[in-house]
Amino acid sequence: MTDWDGLTPPDAAEIEAMARSALAGLPAEFAEGAAGVAIRVAEFAPDEVLDELQIDDPFELTGLYDGVPLTEKSVSDQPGQPDIIWLYRRPILDEWAARGDVSLGDLVVHVVTHEMAHHFGWSDDDIARIDKWWE
C-alpha cells in the first residue's frame, strides 16, 4: 500500500506553471496570437458562469475561454480586459483521477489547447472534428 502522508495535490501555481509550459510549446504560427492571453486558475467556475452555461455540476467544467476570439476582433475595438483562459483546478484534478489514462500535465495541456482554439475562433464542433481526445 502506498503511504500518502505528505503528498498534496498540485496547487493553483503548479497548474498555472503547467499551462504556461503548454503555451510556450505552441507552434510559432500561433505563438504571436496567443501572447496576450492571460492564464488564471480558480478552484471552480463561479456560479454565474455555471448558470450561464447551464451546467449543474461544477466538476463538469475544467476550463473556459473568456474573451473575444481573434476572428471577431477589430482594430477599432476599445481596449478592454485581456482575454483569459480560466482553468478550474478541482475539476481538472477530479477528471485526471477518474480517467487514470493520462498524465496531469497532458490533461492541462489539452484543456489549455482547447480553450486557446476558442481564442483563435474555433467552435466546439470545429475542435471536435480534429480532437479525438474524448474517444
Score class of each variant (00 low, 15 high):
Asp3Trp: 14
Trp4Met: 14
Asp5Tyr: 14
Asp5Lys: 13
Gly6Ile: 01
Leu7Trp: 14
Leu7Tyr: 14
Leu7Ser: 12
Thr8Asp: 15
Asp11Glu: 05
Asp11Trp: 08
Ala12Lys: 06
Ala13Ile: 12
Ile15Cys: 02
Glu16Cys: 08
Ala17Met: 10
Met18Trp: 10
Met18Lys: 05
Met18Pro: 02
Ala19Thr: 01
Leu23Phe: 10
Ala24Leu: 02
Gly25Arg: 09
Pro27Thr: 04
Ala28Leu: 13
Phe30Ala: 15
Phe30Lys: 10
Glu32Ile: 04
Gly33Val: 02
Gly33Asp: 06
Gly33Arg: 03
Ala34Glu: 10
Gly36Arg: 01
Val37His: 06
Ala38Phe: 14
Arg40Phe: 12
Arg40His: 13
Val41Trp: 06
Ala45Ile: 05
Asp47Val: 10
Asp47Asn: 12
Asp47Ala: 13
Val49Thr: 11
Asp51Met: 11
Asp51Lys: 13
Glu52Arg: 07
Leu53Gly: 04
Leu53Ile: 01
Gln54Leu: 13
Ile55Ala: 08
Ile55Ser: 04
Asp56His: 14
Asp56Trp: 14
Asp57Tyr: 05
Asp57Val: 02
Glu60Cys: 12
Glu60Ala: 12
Glu60Ser: 15
Leu61Ser: 09
Leu61Arg: 08
Thr62Phe: 15
Leu64Pro: 00
Leu64Tyr: 06
Tyr65Asp: 00
Asp66Gly: 08
Gly67Ile: 00
Val68Thr: 09
Val68Trp: 06
Pro69Asn: 07
Leu70Pro: 07
Leu70Arg: 07
Asp77Trp: 10
Asp77Glu: 07
Gln78Ile: 15
Gly80Ala: 05
Gly80Arg: 02
Asp83His: 00
Leu87Gln: 04
Leu87Ser: 03
Pro91His: 04
Ile92Gly: 04
Leu93Asp: 08
Leu93His: 08
Glu95Lys: 14
Glu95Arg: 13
Arg99Trp: 13
Arg99Gly: 09
Arg99His: 12
Gly100His: 05
Ser103Gln: 05
Ser103Leu: 00
Ser103Met: 03
Leu104Ile: 02
Gly105Lys: 11
Asp106Ser: 14
His110Val: 06
His110Thr: 05
Val111His: 01
Val112Ile: 07
His114Met: 00
Met116Cys: 10
His118Gln: 04
His118Ser: 04
His119Phe: 06
Asp126Ile: 03
Ile127His: 05
Ile127Thr: 08
Ala128Lys: 03
Ile130Pro: 11
Asp131Gly: 04
Lys132Phe: 15
Trp133Glu: 06
Trp133Ile: 01
Trp134Gln: 11
Glu135Pro: 10
Glu135Arg: 09
